[in-house]
Design a protein around this nucleic acid. Structure first.
Length: 295
RNA sequence: GGAGAGGUAGCGAAGUGGCUAAACGCGGCUGACUGUAAAUCAGCUCCCUACGGGUUCGGCAGUUCGAAUCUGCCCCUCUCCA
């Protein structure tokens, strides 16, 4: 019998957090954040991190667990997430994953297999095309699937083969490890974009600029992983005097739009999602979850 | 009223006789996806009954085998001088 894991997905600013909290309160849940930026301490405003008082007493995991200088990846999320699911289960609570990072959610729920990673060869002096040709030699299937310009993926596949002696594709299965109900909030695109813009404006009002200044003052740099997040990285141009604050804000909005679009693409094609229109009455959602729990 | 500059696809902006349905950027859309995933990468974006057809570059009329590109007139915008 698989463990039940409720998942709330959806694009940025779609309202996942609020829904997750409501459900957590109604079903004795604990929330596991599936977010790659909110793990970092000090990145509060720009990451859209939920405030303590907004949690309404619901336990949140995997928020503020990393220093901005540290790295974080699916591997970490998957490992910790699985331990958390077990622990929450044991307490008799319902694990609720809440996040917009499709890969994280999928890697947690399905049997994605990651191994401890030591060294990684970047082949810095080899160009994209040659690198792709090298991959074609050892793993033709991946070579067909991965575009030569997508250096990051080519490197990954190449490194995988070198370490494991088998193509990365042979490692792929998609068995669900949990009994997961995956809900995702849906709304019209233009409405989402408007919400995003409004949220960005609010971030600025809440002091996003001084948050970034503070981070920089404390020694965090734009090339640290944490600062690669939307709402942070855009400020680099501002501090280099290349862009005005206005331009930076505009860029944050447009980066967020693009990001939201990519999230939709992922969720639509990679996960068995039950889409919930944003206007759906909460009681109906609650009923749906109850029915699933009773199954 | 006088002197200049200019009007190009949703926006910005190239193009100054054929190779142009028109570079490029933005915006919009679509897709790929097992370790930076808020990442990385690919495609589409005048219209259509779409391996072909139709209509474009302020308007109209010309020159030319052929025009966004040359000529004339007209309309509009901007800057400067009155």
């Amino acid at each position: 019998m698989h463990k039940k894991v409720l998942t709330i997905a959806g694009a940025t600013a779609s309202g996942k957090s609020a829904l997750a909290i409501k459900l957590a309160k109604d079903f004795k849940g604990e929330i596991i954040s599936g977010d790659s930026i909110q793990v970092y301490r000090g990145l509060d405003i720009g990451s859209g991190k939920i405030k303590k008082e907004e949690m309404e007493g619901v336990v949140h995991h995997l928020i503020d667990i990393k220093d901005p200088k540290e790295s974080y990846s699916v591997y970490d999320f998957q490992k910790m997430g699985r331990l958390l699911i077990d622990a929450i289960e044991r307490r008799g609570h319902l694990p609720i994953i809440c996040g917009g990072t499709g890969l994280y959610i999928k890697a947690l729920i399905y049997d994605y297999d990651f191994k401890e990673e030591k060294d990684f060869n970047n082949y810095e002096d080899i160009d994209d095309v040659s690198l792709h040709a090298m991959l074609k030699e050892v793993d033709p299937i991946s070579a067909i699937k991965i575009h030569p310009h997508n250096r990051r993926r080519v490197l990954r596949a190449l490194n995988y083969f070198e370490k494991n002696g088998s193509p990365i594709s042979s490692n792929k299965t998609e068995k669900a490890l949990y009994d997961a109900l995956i809900l995702a909030l849906d709304m019209e695109r233009s409405e989402l974009y408007a919400k995003i813009d409004q949220r960005v404006d609010n971030m600025v009002k809440d002091g996003l600029l001084s948050e970034v200044e503070g981070l920089l003052k404390s020694g965090i740099a734009f090339n640290d992983q944490a600062m690669k997040g939307i709402g942070y990285r855009e400020f680099e141009a501002y501090f280099k005097n290349e862009q005005s604050l206005e331009e930076v804000i505009q860029k944050i909005k447009s980066d967020s739009h693009n990001f939201a679009k990519r999230q939709y693409t992922w969720l639509r094609h990679q996960l068995p999602i039950e889409w919930i229109d944003i206007k759906t009455d909460y009681e109906l959602i609650k009923e749906r979850v109850r029915k699933w729990l009773d199954e």
